[in-house]
Amino acid sequence: MNNEINEYIKKHKRKKVRKKLVLFFIFFFSITILILLKAPFFNIADIKVENNKIIDSKDIISRSELFGKNIFYINQKDVSYKITENPYIEQVNLKRVFPNGIIINVVERKAVYFVKSSDGIYVLNHELKILEKRASIDGLNLTELTGVSPTSTDVGTYLTSDEKIKRIATNIGKLLEENKSDVKFNLANLESTTSLYMLVGDVKLLLGNDENLETKLNNCIGILKDSSKGLTKGYIDVSFNGDPVYKNE
Rank of each mutant, 00 (worst) to 15 (best):
I60Q: 03
D56K: 13
P40E: 04
I83H: 02
I5W: 02
P244G: 05
Y81F: 10
L21G: 04
K58S: 10
D210L: 04
N248P: 05
L205Y: 02
I103L: 03
S136Y: 07
R109E: 06
K116N: 12
G139F: 07
N100E: 08
E7A: 12
V79R: 06
L213A: 07
N100H: 11
T160L: 01
E65M: 09
E108L: 00
N93D: 15
E144Q: 10
I137G: 00
K174L: 14
N105S: 15
E50I: 03
I60V: 03
F24K: 13
Y158E: 06
V183W: 10
Y88C: 06
N241T: 13
Y88M: 06
S80R: 09
K180I: 13
N6R: 15
N75I: 14
K69S: 12
V106I: 12
N100R: 02
V112I: 11
E50K: 00
N212G: 09
F28H: 13
K10W: 11
V17D: 06
I44T: 04
T143M: 04
I54P: 01
A45P: 01
N241F: 13
T232I: 14
C220G: 08
K95G: 15
K10S: 10
E7F: 08
L145C: 05
T146G: 03
D202A: 09
V238R: 03
D154I: 12
S152D: 15
